[in-house]
Design a protein around this nucleic acid. Structure first.
Length: 278
DNA sequence: CTTTGGCTCTCCCTTACGTCA
DNA sequence: TATGACGTAAGGGAGAGCCAA
């Protein structure tokens, strides 16, 4: 799936929705070669460390005060699947991680390694992450390490945050799309009813009136306003092959003024060139 | 040139923790 | 105080691309 599908408006909503699984294709391409610069065997040490916010630190063991002020107490859990390249480089960006190891890795409640403490990001951390996400919904390895350093987090934590943030964005967009389709369905249902009534009238007029008055206009019928999907040439109402959405930016914008403009402009599919802008 | 194994990435689903009503 | 709902950090699997052998 192309990551470029995720676009942000001012509200931070993703405006493009891509359906279907498989994320690796263009993702790797976007990464380019920079992600491979420091490819080395992964660190095999069990090194999951979880930073805890201030309050947790205050209640934790007093000897763990070596980290930054907002995330100092950490917990190491065995069985981590992998450590990222930049973390294996020996340049542990987070002093949090170092503090965790120095602090005996949360010995107070991690006897068997089965419990996992959960990090709560501080408001400042969340705000900065949010800002960066608005700029780019993905990070290259360099950006990730830099941001992790800035936030006193591990690159892996930054990566996970972005991953979860993308998921939330996509979920929101799915809800928006769902609502849009619902309205579309309602509109179609209503239009179908209207056409059925019109057909009924025409049939009755056919037998009751002279041929000259056999049209709704001639009979004085007031035509209902055409639904939004009928205001487009049929050729533009094409399902986008990549996302399977009904095409036609004008239609989308007319049908749902609340829908963000960028979203409405997506998924325009030209049936002649077979290209989609989604 | 093709194949293959190892590596990375992201996405997706799930789990589990922290918070709040 | 106990509890269920909810938000979210993190674990782990799967699929895909890249690279070297």
């Amino acid at each position: 799936m192309a990551q470029e599908d995720v676009h942000l408006d001012d509200a931070g909503l993703a405006l493009g929705l891509s359906l279907g699984g498989g994320g690796g294709a263009s993702d790797a391409a976007r990464q380019g070669t920079c992600s491979r610069l420091s490819r080395e065997p992964r660190a095999l040490e069990p090194s999951l460390t979880l930073s805890m916010p201030d309050e947790a630190t205050a209640t934790g063991s007093g000897g763990c005060g070596g980290g930054p002020s907002h995330s100092v107490s950490s917990l190491s859990v065995a069985g981590v699947k992998r450590e990222r390249v930049e973390e294996a480089d020996g340049e542990r960006a987070s002093s949090t991680a170092a503090a965790a190891r120095a602090c005996g890795a949360g010995a107070e409640d991690d006897d068997d390694g089965s419990t996992r403490k959960k990090l709560r990001l501080t408001k400042e951390q969340s705000a900065l992450l949010e800002d960066r996400f608005k700029e780019h919904s993905t990070l290259n390895p360099k950006q990730k390490v830099a941001l992790a350093k800035q936030l006193n987090l591990r690159p892996r934590q930054v990566e996970v945050w972005f991953q979860n943030r993308r998921a939330r964005t996509k979920l929101k967009q799915t809800e928006v799309d769902c609502e849009f389709l619902k309205r579309c369905c309602e509109s179609l249902t209503e239009e179908n009813r209207r056409l059925q009534r019109e057909l009924q009238e025409l049939r009755s007029l056919k037998f009751a009136a002279p041929p000259a008055a056999a049209t709704p206009a001639a009979a004085g019928a007031v035509p209902a306003p055409a639904p939004f999907y009928m205001q487009l040439p049929a050729a533009t109402l094409t399902l986008c092959p990549s996302c399977e959405r009904l095409g036609g930016p004008a239609a989308a914008a007319k049908a749902d003024p609340d829908r963000p403009k960028a979203a409405a402009s997506h998924h325009f599919f030209n049936p002649f060139t077979h290209s989609a802008a989604c």
